[in-house]
Design a protein around this nucleic acid. Structure first.
Lengths: 340, 340
DNA sequence: AGAGGCTTCCAAAGCGCTTTGGCTATTTTG
DNA sequence: CAAAATAGCCAAAGCGCTTTGGAAGCCTCT
């Protein structure tokens, strides 16, 4: 059942039927009702390929997925996706994942824009002065960044959490508990979120005249093993930290293992706070010692990004509005006063 | 730059240019060369929307993503996706994720087929007599199942690992080590993979005249917490198992925690084997006691599925070929002889 | 009563590609 | 050497929608 058939059986032109269906004003309400009715009754669904060719709109949102033998997709991605799906489902929005060589995402961005394959895209894990962001901005496709960049002379729409504030709070708590030597096990230092988190910790320390020594910062990709190694390195130093702030639950698993291997205890010898993106399959309250966290649901972020993308596509949202979500600090058993 | 312009500047018809580009035989080789050359030089790329409307082919593969407030996307998904991306990237294949209400995926399948949005789809986590599979089969869209179903009177193409064989091997090893009371912490009992795994364990036990008591089987969704709870339940019974086979590394984390909470040790009091889908961020050799595993890279499976989907789309693969991958049993420190 | 303005509809021209059905030379065949 | 086959090309008809540029009919206004 296509437009032609439908309009024929209504003895109307395709023009009128099309307009009736798409809510254009120049059609009699009575007629519109007839058309809508017939469309529903016959289960008419406009052919998206045709509509797309005519309008250039695809009704899909895009994401360029960096891949490569040495590239692992971030496990957070799937949670973000859950949220995105939550929103998209209700709006019949599909998501197109375009795999790209991690070393050359530009080609892929250009392709999907040139082909008009998607109406909007989102970027994640941005770095300062991220090239993808500049590219997408000049290509003129609607987009939203999940996270933030820095060092651009233009504004852009984004959704981010207050990483600096969160880690500032976490560090401040530890300082208040008397800790003098804090350490930070961070994610990839080239990504903005990691920079912000470090900034937050430094600011909290500075407020009490303390500093974060270079030896007390480790930036690694977020795996259990890297958490373990980083913790070993930190704790086997001459003046080991008495508190660690850690950028992910997965790394925190490794930290806990390292602490145990070294015969230390949490929170007796070491206080630990980690950032929790809220995975359903790994919860901080179930750590051997319930873990204090800075918590922000990445799934909710996914839903919000989808919502804003849809708004941008339909013209409801414009401009370069940035949105920063506050982060909860949830104190559990893994923090205590500094050992004497 | 479109076909019309290109053919005009070559003083050829659109027909000829189109045919030259798409490798049809009825065009002079000399002409073809000229066309190819000009196309490359001017960076001509056929408009996919137009091609799609004309041919009905989209050049994308689809996946219906079950979502909902109570639905969590399996963390394995992201690894599978990595593999899929590895292949798809090299072939400019995009992946369309269509979020669907987990309680009504049928509507979405029908939509993407009716709309010809994708050239092929893959299904995952099939159950016996899975409705989606029957649906997709009748809808006539090329597809591949990742995993297997059971109880159909038709064959279908799939890629699966030898779950039964893997768990059979694991259980057999434990029996050989003298264990009489085995337990199984399995995934969702309604999914075929879980059924196969249980079958494998039972078969190994039966071979030595042993059985898997109902009290010794737990089927839960794969979270750390569920692993913990299941292990507590099992180990606090009157006649607790001396060995556990576990369907995922994430649950194994919980098992390890439970064992520790109960003051037991691995492998002294309990031998443990888990299935490892090979996550980059959690490795069995880094468990407190290195974990014995049945190992199969889900990422490689993703790449293979993409490859086969591409083959089916282009007509290189036909029929209902099933492919079953063997699974490695990797023995590490977490297994030992049964306690006396 | 004629001009101008709405309202409501339509025919037809795209969107950019593929593919059908010729048509004209040139070559092969009996 | 005429007839048949083949090679190489083209015009035009889709694919199914949106949108432009009218046009008819009916009011309102001067």
């Amino acid at each position: 059942m296509n437009l032609k058939q439908l309009s024929h059986m209504l003895s109307l032109s395709q023009t009128t039927v099309s307009r009736a269906l798409n809510g254009y004003p120049e059609v009699n309400e009575e007629t519109r009702r007839r058309v809508m009715d017939a469309a529903k009754r016959h289960g008419y669904r406009p052919n998206p390929s045709a509509r797309r060719l005519a309008t250039g709109k695809s009704g899909m949102i895009g994401y360029v997925l960096p891949t490569g033998a040495a590239v692992d997709i971030d496990p957070h991605f799937v949670e973000f996706l859950s949220g995105l799906g939550d929103y998209a489902r209700a709006h019949e929005l599909d998501l197109v994942l375009s795999p790209a060589d991690a070393d050359d995402e530009e080609t892929t961005y250009r392709r999907i824009v040139a082909n008009r394959q998607v109406d909007a895209v989102y970027l994640s894990s941005p770095r300062p002065a991220d090239k993808r962001l500049a590219l997408v901005n000049t290509l003129g496709i609607p987009f939203i960044v999940h996270g933030r960049s820095e060092g651009f002379d233009f504004d852009y729409p984004y959704l981010d959490i207050d990483n600096e504030g969160a880690f500032h709070e976490a560090a401040r708590l530890l300082v208040q508990l008397g800790h003098k030597r804090l350490a930070l096990i961070n994610g990839n230092e080239r990504e903005t979120f990691a920079i912000h988190r470090e900034r937050g910790v430094r600011r909290a320390l500075a407020a009490s005249g303390l500093t974060l020594g270079e030896r007390h910062v480790r930036s690694v990709t977020m795996t259990e093993e890297n958490g373990y190694r980083a913790a070993r390195r930190l704790l086997e130093q001459d003046e080991p930290p008495t508190a660690i702030v850690c950028s992910s639950l997965i790394m925190a698993l490794g930290v806990v293992r390292a602490v145990r291997d070294l015969g230390l205890t949490i929170p007796g010898d070491l206080s630990l706070v980690a950032h929790d993106d809220v995975f359903p399959w790994l919860r901080p309250e179930n750590f051997p010692v319930p873990l204090s966290t800075t918590r922000s649901s990445i799934r909710l972020a996914g839903a919000r990004v989808a919502e804003r993308l849809a708004a941008r596509i339909s013209g409801l949202e414009e401009g370069a509005r940035g949105e920063v979500w506050p982060v909860d600090l949830v104190v559990r058993g893994s923090v205590a006063g500094a050992p004497v």
